[in-house]
């Protein structure tokens, strides 16, 4: 059969009318925010601390899952509606409010257009005033630790680590150097201020004259670490 002009017309018509009514628009409302304690961002490990967003009112109940960024940010594109935001049990280096029945508290968000909702949590500890300096290829960090939770729920420090990586993703699984990273045991910490750790950066291939570093604090009995903000350090 020869292709005639009206065949093309019919084809075009079909293509143009084909994808109309049956498709929904993609969600456009952006729910974003960060993990904070009194306005201070809480830094966590990449892809380690999950959150869940439920939309109640439907027959089946399953969560929209996501994880916090290393700097504590999160963002989801959603449809407008009412959502409940929660963090699963035993996740994150902080306390999340428990309800008397043993279930997790949730935060109700009425989403109408894009919205910023910061998630206020109470961390066990915070790493503060972290400063990094390089002498040659040796990265030295000095920092303070602040104990936030001091009541019956208080926990001890397990270890404090210095992590160094080639990229901005810096944590136990994303770092340079093999074996144990430089660390201080919690039991060896006598003063919470002016602590120091250092690391000799091995040769990086391909060569780069800068690294990223941050301090991670492991609380005893809590899986996720709390971190200082990532800092870029130029090696001399």
């Amino acid at each position: 059969m020869k292709i005639k002009f009206h065949h093309i017309l019919i084809g075009l018509f079909l293509a143009a009318s084909g994808c109309k009514k049956d498709n929904y628009d993609a969600p456009t409302s952006r729910l974003s925010g960060r993990l904070v304690y009194k306005g201070e961002a809480i830094n966590v490990e990449y892809n380690a601390v999950p959150y869940q967003i439920y939309q109640p009112g439907f027959a089946t109940k399953s969560a929209i899952q996501g994880t916090f960024d290393p700097d504590g940010n999160y963002a989801q594109l959603l449809f407008d509606g009412t959502y409940k935001f929660t963090i699963p049990a035993n996740q994150g280096p902080f306390m999340w409010k428990e309800l008397p029945a043993g279930t997790r508290d949730s935060l109700t968000v009425n989403l109408k257009g894009s919205q910023t909702v910061d998630i206020e949590v109470t961390p066990y500890y915070l790493v503060q005033n972290a400063k990094f300096a390089a002498t040659g290829r040796k990265v030295t960090a000095t920092f303070d630790i602040q104990k936030i939770i001091t009541d019956a729920n208080a926990k001890n420090i397990d270890r404090v680590y210095l992590y160094v990586n080639k990229t901005q993703f810096v944590s136990g699984g994303y770092r340079i150097g093999d074996g144990d990273p430089p660390s201080i045991a919690g039991s060896a910490i006598t003063s919470m201020t002016n602590l120091s750790l250092s690391f000799d950066v091995p040769t990086i291939t391909p060569a780069q004259n800068y690294v990223f570093a941050r301090i991670g604090l492991k609380v005893a009995g809590v899986e996720d670490l709390v971190f200082s903000p990532v800092s870029k350090i130029t090696l001399q």
Partner: peptide, 30 residues
Amino acid sequence: GSNRFLLGNYYSRIGDDVIAANPKIVKQPN
């Protein structure tokens, strides 16, 4: 890579479809 076994790995996840079909199923810890 290097293997990291999280506390949440001790018991495998029960699928959302299972929990949606039977709300009496409680989720795994962590």
